[in-house]
């Protein structure tokens, strides 16, 4: 008979995140995780029913914290430039502070476990972002466009910079460190490109 140990639970959680990021979902198993944590498989089953349960709980936990972080200090009423800047700040802060969690959330979100995300939080998040974009379009601050085009243009450049940072190098192995200055410089270019006043020449 076994009880819960919060330190061990934390170790299991952190190691699982690291393994998922390094090895992906395919290579992940309860046995490997137990080995990596230096605990028995039986102990692992105290915290989680099975592998699916573990991944779903991790996804819900990380996803929830991620969405909370993204909405911090953000309001759908913000002007477009101000709101996107807040998003870039929130997203970069979360990524830099919790790089493994951010990458793990990404892996889980794009997997069959993607539906494990906290539905209420997801709804709040989606509603806030949709209202923000709609407000920007209504105010003439943003050109209407398909959501995929919007997301890839608005956030693609940020995540590319963050990926360069986590790899420590950019193109042709040039040493790279993410800075706020570079982030803001890139953001300006993105915002100018999205502005309806930037017409075709």
């Amino acid at each position: 008979m076994r009880g819960r140990d919060l330190n061990k639970e934390r170790l299991v959680r952190d190691t699982a995140i690291q393994m998922l990021v390094e090895q992906g979902l395919q290579g992940f198993s309860m046995n490997k995780l137990a080995g990596a944590c230096n605990i028995s498989v039986a102990t692992l089953y105290i915290y989680y029913k099975d592998k699916d349960d573990l991944i779903r709980k991790l996804g819900a936990d990380i996803g929830g914290r991620h969405m909370d972080a993204l909405l911090s200090g953000f309001s759908p009423e913000m002007r477009f430039r101000e709101g996107i800047r807040k998003q870039w700040e929130n997203r970069s802060q979360f990524y830099l502070k919790y790089p493994l969690e951010a990458m793990c959330a990404e892996i889980i979100r794009h997997s069959p476990y993607g539906e494990c995300m906290d539905k209420k939080k997801l709804r709040t998040f989606k509603d806030a972002m949709s209202a923000f974009v709609q407000n920007a379009i209504d105010r003439g601050e943003l050109k209407p466009m398909p959501v995929e085009a919007f997301w890839s243009i608005v956030y693609g450049p940020l995540y590319t910079l963050l990926r360069f940072h986590s790899e420590g190098s950019s193109l042709a192995r040039r040493k790279f460190v993410f800075t706020k200055e570079l982030m803001l410089q890139t953001l300006e270019i993105v915002l100018d490109g999205l502005s309806p006043s930037t017409g075709k020449k």
């Binding site: 309860m30 046995n31 498989v41 089953y45 029913k49 099975d50 592998k51 699916d52």
Partner: peptide
């Protein structure tokens, strides 16, 4: 029963 696990825990 975790039938994905080798030990069918």
């Amino acid at each position: 029963v975790d039938q994905q696990d080798a030990d069918c825990v």
